[in-house]
């Protein structure tokens, strides 16, 4: 797991190891922890958190980027002992860069996603459900359908992801110069895979 603090790992290891040690010395079954000891262990397990980052990736078709592939990371604080091989909730800062056939996008914001990652993997493996709200900066190029084809826009994008599919909607405002008839606002929509 990326950047799980060693100290917290040692704490959990120590907590788990203590009953086994008692068994070796006494030869008797391990003593059951008292109610308050157990409560303290549970409290420590819940409260000991670490910041983790995990890679995110998506491919999608959207307006105005058309076909695009994005890569980025989510930085979330979560219980340090969680291995997330089944699933975890990641809540935190998200950043992503996404070049496409008709433009590129840079997005930063907040994400909340239930997902799993394989052991020692750097990327989220399965996204079960999640959403994000991002501030985005978009530059269109090439065969963009916007008028003018090359312009810079800034705005907001909301994303909702389910297994196998994700949707996004947003609004952008042109911040580069253009001719008088050019629309100032662009509404965005997309469908894709990943997060």
């Amino acid at each position: 797991m990326p950047n799980t603090p060693f100290a917290v790992g040692a704490l959990v290891f120590g907590l788990l190891a203590s009953p086994a040690a008692a068994q070796e010395v006494g030869g008797d079954p391990p003593a059951e922890p008292s109610e308050s000891e157990l409560a303290a262990r549970v409290r420590a397990d819940v409260d000991e958190t670490s910041l983790r980052w995990l890679g995110i990736a998506r491919v999608r078709y959207s307006i105005p980027l058309e076909f695009s592939a994005g890569g980025g990371a989510i930085l979330a604080r979560m219980p340090a002992s969680h291995d997330c091989t089944t699933f975890c909730e990641y809540r935190g800062f998200v950043a992503q860069i996404e070049p496409g056939s008709a433009g590129g996008q840079l997005g930063v914001g907040y994400a909340r996603v239930i997902a799993a990652n394989k052991p020692r993997a750097a990327f989220l493996n399965n996204v079960y459900v999640g959403w994000s709200a991002r501030a985005v900066l978009v530059r269109t190029w090439g065969d963009s359908e916007l008028d003018p084809a090359r312009q810079t826009l800034a705005g907001f994008e909301g994303q909702f992801a389910l297994p196998r599919i994700s949707f996004n909607l947003g609004v952008l405002r042109r911040i580069s110069s253009a001719h008088e008839d050019a629309d100032r606002y662009v509404y965005t929509a997309g469908i894709g895979w990943g997060f």
């Binding site: 969680h82 239930i114 459900v129």
Partner: peptide
């Protein structure tokens, strides 16, 4: 309450304090 999931369940599938099956990459 979490997105479609529950915090207690999320904790129980992740905590090293919880004995469960499957658990760990090999058993998974």
């Amino acid at each position: 309450r979490m997105l479609f999931f529950d915090g207690f369940e999320t904790w129980s599938v992740n905590s090293p304090l919880v004995s469960r099956s499957p658990s760990g990459p090999e058993e998974m």
